[in-house]
Design a protein around this nucleic acid. Structure first.
Lengths: 252, 252
DNA sequence: CGTACTATTGAGCGCTCTCAAAACCAGTGG
DNA sequence: CCACTGGTTTTGAGAGCGCTCAATAGTACG
C-alpha cells in the first residue's frame, strides 16, 4: 500500500480550485474575505486552449503559475532527441509550473490534452501580496511541499513497482482526484493517450495496453478506448501492495 | 544528455551552506548583514550524529529543516513490509526535510550515513523572520522549486534510463556536488552502500556491482570498495545521452 | 581468528521491451 | 455511403536486460 496510498493521499489533498477563484485556493488557510478579493483581482483568465496548445514550453521565461479550471494538462520535459518524459497530468483544481520558480525559466513544458481553461497567476504579484498575507506564502510552501511528497511517491513507483502496480496506482490516483472534484470515481474518460500513460509510468505503450487487457480479463474493470469503468476498486487497491516476493532493498 | 545534465545542474546549484551559517544560505539573495545575524541566532547545532542515527523518522512531527554541515544523510520512506525506498542523499550544504512542510509530519525518514553534523532550522522561526525578510521567503520557494526540478530529473532517469545510464548519472551528480564544495570531482568515497545505491536508482544490488565492474573493465573508472576514481569523465558523460536505439515515447 | 556483513561473480529465468502486423477509429473527400 | 488515410490501440512472437537465487570473496570488528 505504501507507494500507492501515498500517491493517492497526495492527489486527494491537492487544493481544489474549482471555479478558479483564488479564494478557493486559500480557503484551507482561513484567509480574510478582503484578502481573497485582492487575490482574485490579479488573475487573468485567458480564452480556453484547444487540444495541443501549450501553456508554456521548456525554456520559456517563468512569469506565472497556472491553475487548471477545466480540462486537463500534461507537463513533460523534452529530451535532446525529440522524445519526452511526461512528468505529470493536471486536472481541474491543480497547479502547473511550480518547478520553474528557482531557475526563473520553465524546465518542463505544459500542453493541454483537451479543450482546457486555466487561470494565470502572475508570480511576482503573488509574491507581493504574499508579503502582506503570510498565510498565502505559507500556503505556497505547502503546495510545493505537497508536490515534493507526490514526486517522491512517483520515485518509489518507478523504482520498484511492476507494470500492473504502476497502472493500478495510476488509475486509483485518477479515480481519487475525479472523486475529489465531484465526478464518478468508478467511471471516467482518460484524456491522455496510451503513449502518454506509458511514458509517465515508465512503460512501453504495448505494456500499458496489455495491462489494461489483463485487468479487463480479470474482471477488475472494463476499458473501451478512453473510457474506464472500475468494477472492483478493492482488488485494484490490493494490487498496490508491493509484491512481497519481489526483492526490495532492505534497510541499509 | 537530457536527464543527466538536468540532474547535474540541479545538484550543482544547490545552495552551499558550508560552515552551516544561514548567512551562506542567504548570500545568493543579497540579505543585509543584520538580517543574516538574526538568522544565525535561531539555529541549533546539536552534537554530531553517528552512523545510523536518525535526524527524524517517518511520521515524526515536523518542526525543523536540517542543513548538512559535514558528513552525509540518506532520506528514505519506509514501506509497509519493512523495506524502504531511498529518496536521496544529502551532502554538506544541502537541506533535508523540505517535503514535510505540507503535512506537518515527515513523510520520509533521514538517517546519517557516517558521522555527520547538521544545523537545525526551526521552521516556525524561519517563517516569522521570513515575513520580515521577503527575500528569505523567496529563497525558500526557490529551494523547493529546485528540489522539484531535481526529482523530475530523477523521474526521467527511473522511467527511461538503463542501468549503466543510471549509475553514470549518479556518479556524475556526486562528482559535481563534491566539486562544488571544493573536493575532488574525480576521486571520492561513497558513504552509502551498494544496497542504498541500487535502491535509489531502482536497481538490484548485484546490478549495481556489475555496472561498477563493467565501468572498471572499460577503463572509465576504478573502484575499490567505497573508493571511486573517475579516469574518463567524458566517457561517463557520454553515457548519459539516452541510447537512441531504445524506444522512448514520442511526443503525444 | 571467527563471525557477520557487504560486495562480487555466475547461472538461469521472467518481465518488459522490441519488432511486426492487424484491428480499430476519426476525419476527408469522392 | 464508402473508400482512403493517418493515427491510435491491441495483440502476437521473440529477445534482452535486469532480477533472483546461490555461492564465493573481501572487509570490519570483536
Amino acid at each position: 500500500m505504501a507507494s500507492g496510498n501515498k500517491l493517492l493521499d497526495v492527489a486527494s489533498v491537492r487544493v481544489a480550485c474549482g471555479d478558479c477563484s483564488l479564494s478557493k485556493l486559500c480557503v484551507p488557510m482561513g484567509l480574510e474575505a478582503a484578502d481573497m478579493d485582492r487575490l482574485d483581482t490579479l488573475m487573468k483568465r485567458p480564452r480556453p486552449l484547444r487540444r495541443g496548445e501549450h501553456l508554456f514550453r521548456a525554456g520559456d521565461r517563468f512569469h506565472s503559475i497556472y491553475a487548471v479550471r477545466s480540462g486537463s494538462v500534461k507537463s513533460y520535459t523534452p529530451c535532446h532527441d525529440g522524445s519526452e518524459q511526461v512528468i505529470g497530468f493536471h486536472l481541474p483544481g491543480e497547479l502547473v509550473g511550480l518547478d520553474a520558480i528557482e531557475s526563473e525559466e520553465h524546465v518542463c513544458a505544459a500542453r493541454v490534452l483537451e479543450t482546457t481553461s486555466v487561470c494565470v497567476l502572475p508570480f511576482d504579484r503573488i509574491q507581493e501580496i504574499a508579503c502582506e498575507v503570510p498565510s498565502l506564502q505559507r500556503q505556497f510552501l505547502r503546495l510545493m511541499s505537497k508536490e515534493l511528497a507526490h514526486e517522491e511517491a512517483m520515485l518509489m513507483l518507478l523504482g520498484k513497482a511492476s507494470a500492473e502496480e504502476r497502472l493500478a496506482t495510476f488509475l486509483l490516483s485518477l479515480a481519487q482526484r475525479f472523486k475529489a472534484r465531484g465526478f464518478s470515481e468508478t467511471e471516467f474518460n482518460l484524456s491522455m493517450s496510451r503513449h502518454d500513460i506509458g511514458n509517465y509510468l515508465g512503460l512501453a505503450v504495448e505494456t500499458v495496453s496489455r495491462m489494461f487487457s489483463k485487468l479487463q480479463e480479470d474482471g477488475v474493470l472494463s476499458v473501451h478506448r478512453k473510457n474506464i469503468r472500475i468494477h472492483e476498486p478493492a482488488r485494484l487497491r490490493s494490487m498496490l501492495r508491493l509484491d512481497e516476493n519481489r526483492s526490495v532493498a532492505r534497510c541499509g
